[in-house]
Design a protein around this nucleic acid. Sequence first.
DNA 1: TATTGTTATACTCTATAACTATA
DNA 2: TATAGTTATAGAGTATAACAATA
Lengths: 146, 146
Amino acid sequence: MSQSTKHRPGPLAGEVRIAASRVLRRLRTERGEADLPEHQFVVLTALHKFGPMTPGALADLEGVKPPSMTRTVNALCELGFAEKVGHEQDRRQVLVALTERGNEEIKVTRRRRDAWLTKQLGTLTPEERQTLAQASELLKRIAGQP
Amino acid sequence: MSQSTKHRPGPLAGEVRIAASRVLRRLRTERGEADLPEHQFVVLTALHKFGPMTPGALADLEGVKPPSMTRTVNALCELGFAEKVGHEQDRRQVLVALTERGNEEIKVTRRRRDAWLTKQLGTLTPEERQTLAQASELLKRIAGQP
DNA sequence: TATTGTTATACTCTATAACTATA
DNA sequence: TATAGTTATAGAGTATAACAATA
């Protein structure tokens, strides 16, 4: 396939999808036995990023139904990584907040997961790393905030 | 965070991981109702790429245990996307092969999944697309073949 | 005896439907 | 009556252990 072909949006889409899939697959492979399940970990990172949220808002954000999020939140609470706080105005609602232990867990897990990728990136030239930094910005822009 | 900081392997690893995660999450969101479950689809693509394989080899490749792969392969066979063929030399083994319908399914699914990403890439400049093309190559190199 | 694949069984995560408490 | 969250129950997908067939 020619270079110019790969720069057209259609063919490039396949290239980007494959590249992203393979990197994430490798990152998953490098996942430690002690790591939290992914669906629990992403809730911790959401709480870290947006602050305390209701289970309903977390369910919407993660694209699961409320009963599933109830389970996930309960598991995180039992592990001591999150806690439920009553909403002050609306007593139907519950706010889920990150605990100090949860915050620490995020940091440790990220370090462990990124170890392999960091090593690989170290084998690239500074120019290649710059290309990846720019590409990361573009991809995040395309994908939107969440 | 400064530009130079992001170009160091450690911080860059986080950026790359986040960017890849978000793009794949959006792609999953855009997934059609008619699409095969991911674990079935990746088996079809493996058969497309490597040709007929045993269930055991597929299990190793996808990182699941043999009983799980038996289930997945059976589902694909019932859908008519794959078929089992007896091994000629070693009659303990079974070869799983892609059918013509399975081949067609791969093409259709890929087109559907990449539609959203293609549209997003169309909003970028040619230079930005070139950056993404180069980055895709780098990421595939880092991640290795599978 | 070792290997390949399957069956039996249990656990996890998800969903839909029904229920409780509050607005 | 509507909304937020939970509980009850069922459906996928995966794993471990035990089994059958073949080498």
